[in-house]
Structures are given as C-alpha cells and as structure tokens.
Simulated scan of single mutants.
Amino acid sequence: MKKKSLLSIIAAGMVAVTLLAGCGKKEDTKPAESTTKTETAKADATTSASVVSDAAAFEQAIGTNGKWIIAITKDVTTDKELVLDGEFKNGKKDDKGNDAIQRKIALYTQDENRKVTARFTLTAPKLTIKSPMASIQHGTFKGDVYVNVDNFQLVDAKVDGNIYFATDSAKSTFKMDGTSSVTGKQEVKK
C-alpha cells in the first residue's frame, strides 16, 4: 500500500513538472517558467521569470536584480512597502527592432492553452512602480499603488486601494482594460 501511495505522489509530481515545462516555452504570456538551477544559470537573466510563493522571495524578485516577470503561486502578504524597480527586456523586439522593455507582476497561473487557472492576491501597504512599461496582471493587489513611470497597466487585475501618480504624464499614460478595476482614488500626488 505504501509503495502504491509513493508511486501516485511521484506520478502526480511528474505530471505537474511536465505541465510547467510545457508552459515554459511561452514566456511572453505565462507567469512562470520551469527550469533547473543549471538551466536558469544559462538563461538570459533579462528574459526569464521569477516564480515565488512567499513575501521574502517576492521582495527580492521585484528589485533591480530580479527578472522581467515576477509570478506568485499563491496569495502573498507582507507588512513591508514594496518597490518594483529596474529596467528589463522581455526578449522581444518593438516596432523599431529594439529590445522591448517590460516588467510584469503576474498574480496568476495558466494552463498550456494560456487559460488562467488560478488568481492570487498580493497584499502590502504600498507598492511603488519604478520599472518602465510595468503591469499587474490577472489578480488582486490589496494596498496603495504609487506610479512613478509612464505606461503603467492593469490587465484583468484589481487594485483594492488607491493609485497615486507622481506626474500628470504617469496618470495620462496609465491604462487598464475593461476587466480591471480600482476601488479607490486615481490621482496625481506629487
């Protein structure tokens, strides 16, 4: 009986790894990639993802030494103020052939067909956005967001709090799609 249970656990783990590895080739739209430490060391640091499940790992991943995608795999709560900082390339080219700049906080998981399978909540008193071309996608941020850059986006995401913009330009270039929402104020606060 013990042998059967162990084999079931191993088989379930192999299925999960296979699904993650299958999703790993779609970096541009998925929140995470499955790699070993050796593969991660070989990957281009600017185009790979950070997959985290706790506040300490998230805090490290959003810094200047992090990755362009920061994906959480469950609800994460911290009492610290967070800062998304650094300029990152997503591995694609823009219309002019230059490396595309992007930073994504992915509050979800998805299947091999890119269908969102789970949404998560990130809770912190404050999140300051300093990375250019940043977005929060497919989940909820509970707290206030302070946007210091242009072109910040919400994609199928909710901010349960206020969004404060450092400049008129940051506010005027802010975008959110029809499935996104903000429960509080959206205003310039210098």
Rank of each mutant, 00 (worst) to 15 (best):
D44T: 10
G22A: 14
T38C: 00
N65G: 04
S53T: 14
A57I: 01
A57Q: 12
I62V: 15
K67M: 00
K37A: 08
D75R: 03
A41P: 00
I69T: 13
K67F: 00
A43G: 09
C23T: 14
E39M: 13
E59R: 08
D54Q: 08
G63S: 09
G22Q: 10
S53H: 09
G22T: 06
E27Q: 11
V76F: 07
Q60D: 12
T36E: 06
A56I: 11
T29R: 09
I70K: 06
G22C: 15
E27S: 09
K37T: 05
S50V: 02
A61E: 13
A71M: 05
K30D: 02
G63F: 08
A57Y: 06
T40D: 11
A55C: 05
S50T: 01
A41D: 08
E39D: 04
P31H: 01
A61K: 03
P31E: 00
C23F: 04
E33N: 11
G22M: 15
V51T: 15
C23K: 10
V51S: 10
K42N: 07
P31C: 12
A57S: 15
T35I: 10
K30V: 14
P31R: 05
A32I: 04
A32K: 01
A57P: 07
K42M: 10
A32S: 14
S50I: 00
K42F: 07
A49C: 10
T29E: 07
D75H: 01
V51F: 02
K25Q: 12
T36W: 03
Q60F: 02
D44A: 04
K26G: 03
T64N: 09
T29H: 11
S50F: 00
P31V: 08
E59F: 01
K74N: 13
K42E: 07
K42Y: 09
A49T: 12
V52K: 01
A57K: 11
E27G: 15
I62S: 03
T46W: 01
W68D: 00
E39A: 13
K37F: 03
G63T: 11
A61H: 06
V51Y: 02
G66H: 03
A49I: 01
T73D: 04
V51D: 03
K74M: 09
S53N: 14
A61P: 00
S50N: 14
A45T: 10
K67L: 00
K42T: 05
T38E: 11
T46A: 13
I62C: 06
T64W: 02
T35A: 09
F58D: 10
D54T: 03
D75W: 07
E59D: 06
A61I: 06
T77E: 12
F58C: 06
G22W: 04
A56N: 11
G24L: 05
G63C: 09
T64A: 05
A57C: 05
D28E: 12
V76Q: 08
V76L: 13
S53G: 14
N65F: 07
I62A: 08
E33C: 12
D54Y: 04
F58N: 05
S34V: 09
V51Q: 00
V51M: 02
A55G: 04
A55L: 07
